[in-house]
Design a protein around this nucleic acid. Structure first.
Length: 989
RNA sequence: GCCCGGAUGGCGGAAUCGGCAGACGCGACCGACUCAAAAUCGGUUGCCGCGAGGCGUGUGGGUUCGAGUCCCACUCCGGGCACCA
């Protein structure tokens, strides 16, 4: 196999026929049609109203279709052939749907804010705007060459001031909203203020019990700010010193490194903007059911949201009247078995509960002396405070990477304090251990070692009592050679499944004998009545950390007054333009530097502070100096495509309704507005979760009409490629590798073949430009669609391209004489065979195009193309009806050749809106079908029958066949299975 | 560890409901054209076997007249999550 050798398609062009479809001709045709489409505004999709409504009457009766790509980040690296796969697919689909009578909206924009542009700008010393615009121009040119049918009027970049003005506007809507739990939706903050003022809502829970009327202005603002969907919080955040910025949880890998750049990330407390995505956890989870997404993506979102049902339980701290430690547990039924508690090292209550000395003596009967192991490994003479302090230092010094790599041996230290197990008032010790995470639940747990792996391990380590409160099923015990009377402390491992309650009775409640679900209900009831807790639902999802210490992002439309509290700028002051500064470099910090990071915008002289009149006279204000994360702009671009020139609104409501009110395949109203969204699986949680969240806020506030943005999501696979490394493991340029003598060689150096992502790092990138040069864009399009199913990853193999190129050559040759350039199409009617094959092809291709099975659509077109070529060879020309249909069917896949041939056979207008061929059902049925005859399930003969022959007729036809007669001679037929139209099977003895 | 997805010729891949495995393309082989080669065109091509025939969809079992497709148990590969109480 010679993957990398370029077939000499045009090796000797001077010798080839003058009018052959080769790369040179293809390039000329393609350039011509790009210009024509631009001039004729071929792909402009009219809106029902507004500036882009010209020509709407033409499509007023057509159903709309909104096809969307995940818009690209315009990187400086340029494209390789893997990048446009999804764009080609959506273009083929959109072109097909236009011909099938839909008003199709398909546009392309650029997600242009963000880290890489800024880093590149820093490296080259140029302003990020300059490099970004250059990158966009390059990418536009490369994508234009593919002939993508986008409505160019709707192209936006998130960095356009006219775009991010509305990103800022949306942020203001989020800032000016709160989540009404009873109504289960976001509402304007003004309505909350009204409720607080009228007394309809009690401010007390957030003000130490003081009523609204007794609060001063600043206190009132604090209360209201505490409700907002966008709020400032001092919280442990992901700090990436190497990038000089904080990151969202979603941007940190499981190895505790930044997704961009793979730098270490540390937790540190910082004051940052947060968006209250957690308020939407349940809806983000539940509404997944309405979407046509793959199960795996839905599952990834479900896992990220991480819903679990359980209970909150409050444990009173011994000797601290009124102080409770609240925990979340999914197994409240094991509460009687809680023999200790654990707080996360960062838990705020740790400092409050630590006693001066280790408990001992008469203090507690059970704990005559604090065991040495509980005091930590820091020496026997340290105090509880010292032990905990040292342990905390030990825990935080471990980076997330180390926590990951280590064998997860449980470590921890006793705080010296106790809490009462509320079921029996027994004091249980409270530990600090880093196996409990501050970021989940309440940052504290009740530990039930008999029924939890981690607690069991920890309890074994520190010799803490293990009390079984769930009797395992007999099989579990038998598998471990245990009997029911063996105490849990002697089990080899904890029992974590469902069983039957035991040792769980007090004066008020008994779980003994109850199965686990019943026990959960009973203890939930008891918690509620006793006041110790209540059943609840907990989510892994955290609020979205929304500020970044970067230059190249959207400025917040926020200023701070003398109180230090945030003030939203009025809509009339938008946009807040990104100021020009000389030095946009982030301040990179050392890993141990814990000074407050300085955002680049702090260096914007004359901008960072500003005098404004926000209604109470001119006053000095300090601007918010952080910028928004890259995800902000990508959260709503699909809405701006709808109405990109609207200066008064984010999107006109009538336009929004027109494009976003959708129906599902079965005709039912869809939850999401975008009919088809195609993109890579890498955005499964980040972008797709954030965009759904923003959409739901906008839905609650009445700015969009659907609860979800994207009805159908399609994840295209990745184009991968072989890569080659020498014996040092260094990658060599894949294009230079040859296969010979059963091995691979770069020159004379033997190399080994590997397989992976296409790109610079593996030195195996193939660029679209080289494929245009050697074959043309239509060949590239066709090849990418023919490689395999769109949702699968598949290897690029340049050698295979020749196949689809030959297809186009043959198609061309059917219509155009290669030597003379003359068009040859016969006006004679097509023969029977051709017509039947044509209509069968139409039926198959239409079907496949609608389901995006482009690879099999192309296979069917190959077959028909080959047939028509034989007709041309036999008769000198192919019948016009067949040629026209073939051109129209190929056109969405290879639009330039399609248009050119369409024009050459005599049409003067683009085929973009010509109806896609429809199959005549009468031509799809055969007079005779050949069906197999099996003996004991093995095919032994074939017979011809009418397609509608019934069982008896089919069996009779089979028996009448001479070959079948021979086979059955002398055998006893025990059973005959007849599937009319499919087969006959004789079961013989 | 948990949750998804996948495994079919030399290669990419086809195969509605369980009903002729390998459509279509690449490659390979043979032939036409050519002084020759490339390009182009035509034919052959799952494996074993001269043939009759046999064997074949990751492995082992099962259901069925019939299994790539359904069920059970596994292997390997890819992706996601991971001390989530």
């Amino acid at each position: 196999m010679t993957d990398t050798r370029r077939p000499a398609t045009n090796a000797n062009p001077s010798d080839a026929p003058s009018y052959r479809y080769d790369a040179k001709l293809a390039n000329a045709i393609e350039a011509k049609w790009h210009d024509r489409w631009d001039e004729e505004h071929t792909f402009w999709a009219p809106n029902p109203t507004g500036l882009l409504s010209e020509g709407f009457e033409r499509v007023a009766d057509e159903p709309k279709l909104y096809v969307l790509d995940m818009f690209p980040y315009p990187s400086g690296a340029g494209l390789h052939v893997g990048h446009p796969l999804g764009y080609i697919a959506t273009d083929v689909y959109a072109r097909f749907q236009r011909m099938a009578g839909r008003n199709v909206l398909h546009a392309m924009g650029y997600d242009a804010f963000g880290l890489p542009a800024e880093q590149y700008a820093v490296q080259t010393g140029q302003h990020p705007r300059v490099t970004t615009e250059a990158n966009i121009a390059t990418m536009r040119r490369q994508l234009r060459a593919l002939g993508l049918g986008h409505d160019s009027r709707r192209s936006i970049a998130t960095t356009d001031v006219s775009y991010y003005r509305w990103t800022q506007w949306i942020f203001l809507q989020i800032f000016d909203s709160w989540y009404d739990q009873e109504a289960d939706r976001a509402r304007p903050i003004a309505e909350l203020v009204a409720e607080l003022e009228s007394g309809a809502r009690d401010a007390a829970p957030s003000t130490d019990g003081r009523p609204w009327s007794e609060l001063d202005d600043v206190e009132r603002r604090r209360v209201v700010d505490g409700f907002r969907l966008a709020y400032i919080a001092e919280a442990p955040v992901n700090w990436c010193p190497a990038l000089g910025t904080v990151l969202a949880n979603e941007e940190v890998t499981s190895e505790g490194r930044s997704e961009r750049g793979n730098h270490p990330v540390f937790k540190r407390p910082l004051k940052q903007w947060m968006l209250r995505i957690t308020a939407y956890a349940e809806r983000l989870l539940a509404d997944l059911d309405m979407l046509d997404w793959t199960d795996s993506i839905k599952q990834m979102q479900r896992n990220w949201i991480g819903r679990s049902e359980g209970a909150r339980v409050r444990f009173p701290v011994v000797n601290h009247e009124g102080l409770d430690i609240e925990v979340f547990t999914t197994r409240p039924d094991t509460l009687f078995g809680a023999t200790y508690m654990v707080l996360a090292p960062e838990h705020p209550l740790v400092d409050e509960i630590i006693p001066v000395d280790w408990p001992g003596g008469e203090q507690f009967d059970e704990w005559l002396e604090t065991p040495a192991a509980w005091r930590g490994v820091f020496g026997a003479d340290v105090s509880p405070t010292e032990a905990v302090t040292k342990y905390r230092r030990f825990a935080t010094a471990k980076s997330d990477v180390e926590r990951q790599v280590e064998t997860r041996e449980k470590t921890g230290v006793f705080t010296g304090a106790f809490a009462f197990n509320p079921t029996n008032d027994q004091p249980i010790p409270i530990f600090v251990a880093d196996y409990v995470l501050m970021g989940y639940g309440t940052g504290a747990i009740m530990a039930v070692p008999a029924h939890d792996e981690r607690d069991f391990e920890f309890a074994r380590e520190l010799e803490i009592p293990i009390v079984g409160v769930v009797r395992p099923p007999d099989e579990w015990l038998e598998a471990r050679s245990l009997t029911p009377d063996v105490p849990a402390a002697e089990w080899p491992e904890p029992f974590v499944g469902d069983g039957v309650g035991m040792n769980s009775t007090n004066d008020q409640v008994s779980l003994d004998g109850l199965d686990t679900p019943a026990a959960k209900r009973a203890i939930g009831e008891w918690l509620r009545t006793s006041g110790y807790g209540e059943p609840t639902v907990n989510y892994k999802l955290r609020d979205w950390l929304f500020s970044r210490q970067r230059y190249w992002g959207e400025p917040f439309p926020i200023v701070y007054d003398e109180t230090g509290l945030p003030v939203a700028l009025p809509e009339s002051m938008l946009p807040v333009e990104l100021p020009e500064i000389g030095d946009f470099e982030p301040r990179i910090q050392a890993e141990d530097d814990d000074s407050v990071p300085e955002p680049p915008l702090a260096r914007a002289d004359g901008w960072a502070t500003v005098e404004l009149d926000l209604g109470d006279g001119p006053k000095p204000y300090v601007r918010e100096l952080n910028t928004m994360p890259q995800w902000a702009g990508s959260c709503w671009y699909y809405l701006r495509y709808l109405d990109p020139t609207n200066e008064d609104r984010m999107v006109d409501p009538a336009v929004e309704r027109y494009w976003m009110q959708s129906r599902r395949a079965d005709g039912a109203p869809a939850a999401g507005g975008v009919d088809l969204y195609v993109g890579g699986v890498e955005h499964a949680v980040l972008h797709l979760l954030y965009a759904r969240f923003w959409h739901k806020v906008l839905f609650d506030l009445g700015y969009v009409s659907t609860p979800e943005p994207f009805q159908r999501l399609f994840n295209q696979g990745m184009i991968q490629a072989y890569a080659y490394a020498d014996d040092r493991g260094v990658y060599v340029e894949a294009a230079d590798v040859e296969q010979r003598d059963g091995g691979y060689f770069a020159g004379t150096i033997p190399v080994t073949r590997l397989y992976g992502k296409m790109g610079k790092s593996l030195r195996n990138a193939v660029t679209p430009d080289e494929i245009y040069r050697d074959y043309g864009a239509d060949t590239l399009r066709l090849y990418e669609m023919f490689m395999g199913p769109l949702d699968q990853s598949r290897p690029w193999n340049t050698a295979d391209i020749i196949g689809v190129h030959r297809f186009l050559q043959r198609l061309w040759r059917i219509v155009v004489d290669e030597d003379t350039g003359a068009v040859r199409v016969s006006s004679d009617p097509a023969d029977e065979e051709t017509r039947k094959l044509l209509h069968r092809t139409i039926a198959a291709v239409r079907d496949d195009m609608a389901t995006m099975s482009f690879n099999t659509a192309i296979a069917a077109l190959f077959t028909f193309n080959n047939h028509l070529w034989r007709v041309v060879e036999e008769r000198g020309a192919a019948p016009a009806e067949a040629v026209e249909s073939l051109i129209l069917m190929v056109a969405p896949l290879a639009p330039h050749v399609g248009e050119e041939l369409w024009e050459r056979i005599g049409h003067t207008t683009s085929l973009t809106y010509v109806p896609y061929p429809a199959a005549d059902p009468a031509l799809l049925v055969d007079e005779q079908v050949e069906i197999p005859v099996q003996l004991n399930g093995k095919v032994r003969a074939h017979v011809h029958v009418a397609p509608d022959a019934d069982e008896a007729a089919t069996e009779a036809a089979a028996r009448a066949d001479a070959r079948v007669g021979e086979l059955l001679a002398g055998k006893t037929v025990r059973k005959v299975v007849v599937v009319p139209g499919r087969l006959v099977n004789f079961v013989v003895g």
